[in-house]
Simulated assay, not measured.
Amino acid sequence: MAMGGKTDAATHDLLREGPIKGRGAASFVRGRFEKTVTEAEDDGWGSVYAGDEAGSDWRPPPLPTQVTEERARSIISRNQSPDIPFSQSVNPYRGCEHGCVYCFARPSHAYLDLSPGLDFETKLYAKTNAAQLLRAELGKRGYRCSSISLGINTDAYQPIEKRHRITRQVLEVLAECRHPVGLITKSGLIRRDLDLLAPMAKQGLVHVYVSITSLDNRLSAILEPRAAAPHTRLKTLQALHDAGVPVGVMVAPVIPMISDRELEQILEAAYAHGARGAGYVLLRLPHELKEVWREWLALHYPDRAAHVMSLVQQMRGGKDYDSRYGTRMRGEGPFADLIAMRFAKAYKRIGFGRLPPLDTSQFVPPDPPRPRSPQGELF
């Protein structure tokens, strides 16, 4: 295996032969910015991949999760995308241990010269100064309050949050400043922070969406191997609702011939557990995610892989992905229209509505840090 998390061709091919327990991706898919490519060449002397003297087959070793603590330069990301309902977001982590094979954020790891495949879920970065940076940005004289979405690119409550508690620290700053925040997660760990979220909800400062892709435990285990099980997410919806936190369900992604049949079931189960808002997003396959997804299909659904990709392309203008605003979330064509009609009908029948708007009028800038005084530090 080459340095930097990259693999040579032989290792890459071996990884494709079977799923890796606890991981969503099947290989180290190469990033689009890589400048060097390694290839294996048989020199006639045998191969380190051929097995040991006893004749057992070689298999790649288990892949541990590696977390690098980093000092970020800024923490609020801003966008002007017309099909995204927020203009500001904060991501406490880069990469995500949940390992969701369909995650649209996987290609962002290519900017780090890492693989959007296995690196994305095994080589993680924790922004340990996130709360400090957020406090500084909210305290700037020109700051204008608008809702911040927390954990959009990668889940703010992924497993490493239990130890690093960066999301918790960010929420503490937002609560102190009475700053509105929206969250989306597929983790039950968010229940840990109900002591912060419930008071903020009473002030109209928070709402939460829980993402559910499937209610099938077996399918969820291979689609999103380290995310909370479906029944845990339903319990999380109920806990948030019972605590007075406005909560909705995001059916995402809807995957043709894999999970689309569950659309109505997910909506019904979510409403029964307290969700009062709902949305959905079709499967998106930007950049290297196309290869990650195709490998997953070949491993788990070889009998229908071609059919799945045919439907995906029908919804994306004949391509694997169409990034145009307005169509990238919903797709187009007969199958996409059918999904939209099914969702709209179920949404109305079940009784979903909009979550209450978040209040930006209560924002109070954080207190400026006290100037450092050598004399004062003596006492």
Rank of each mutant, 00 (worst) to 15 (best):
Arg191Gln: 15
Ile20Lys: 04
Arg324Gly: 06
Ser146Gly: 06
Gln362Gly: 06
Met315Ile: 02
Leu267Cys: 01
Ala26Ile: 03
Glu176Phe: 09
Ala221Lys: 07
Gly376Tyr: 08
Pro253His: 12
Pro334Tyr: 12
Val67Tyr: 13
Val210Leu: 09
Glu121Asn: 03
His287Trp: 15
Val206Leu: 07
Asn129Ser: 02
Arg342Ala: 04
Leu138Asn: 08
Leu311Asn: 04
Ser89Val: 07
Leu171Val: 03
Tyr271Val: 00
Leu285Ile: 12
Ile258Asp: 06
Leu237Glu: 13
Asn217Cys: 02
Lys123Ala: 03
Ile339Met: 13
Lys290Trp: 15
Ala344Ser: 13
Arg372Ile: 13
His109Met: 14
Arg78Cys: 13
Ile222Ala: 07
Val210Gly: 02
Met1Arg: 03
Arg168Gly: 03
Thr185Ser: 15
Ile184Gln: 13
Tyr271Trp: 04
Pro371Asp: 15
Arg328Ser: 14
Val364Arg: 15
Ile255Tyr: 12
Ala130Asn: 04
Gly326Arg: 06
Ala346Thr: 07
Val181Gln: 11
Thr213His: 04
Ser47Gln: 11
Gln265Phe: 05
Ile152Ser: 11
Met1Lys: 02
Pro60Trp: 08
His12Met: 00
Gly95Val: 02
Asp52Glu: 10
Gly31Glu: 05
Tyr347Asp: 08
Ala228Glu: 07
Met315Leu: 02
Asp52Asn: 15
Glu69Leu: 14
Pro256Arg: 14
Ser56Phe: 08
Leu219Trp: 06
Asp83Lys: 11
Val181Arg: 08
Glu264Ala: 09
Phe379Trp: 05
Ser147Leu: 03
Phe352Asp: 01
Gln132Ser: 14
Met329Trp: 15
Asn91Arg: 09
Pro230His: 10
Ala336Lys: 14
Pro374Tyr: 07
His273Asp: 01
Arg59Gly: 07
His307Ile: 00
Phe104Gly: 02
Pro92Arg: 09
Val254Tyr: 08
Leu171Gly: 05
Ala40Ile: 02
Tyr111Phe: 11
Gly18Phe: 02
Ala72Ile: 14
Asn129Thr: 01
Gly18Pro: 00
Arg94Trp: 08
Pro365Leu: 03
Arg141Asp: 11
Tyr157Trp: 10
Gln375Arg: 14
Val181Asn: 10
Pro159Glu: 05
Phe28Ala: 10
Ile75Pro: 13
Pro180Asp: 08
Leu355Ser: 00
Ala227Trp: 03
Phe363His: 01
Gln313His: 11
Gln375Trp: 14
Ile75Ser: 09
Gly95Asn: 04
Phe363Met: 04
Gly44Phe: 11
Ile166Glu: 05
His179Ser: 07
Ser373Thr: 09
Glu121Cys: 02
Gln158His: 05
Gln80Gly: 13
His164Pro: 01
Ser149Asp: 03
Gln169His: 12
Leu338Gln: 15
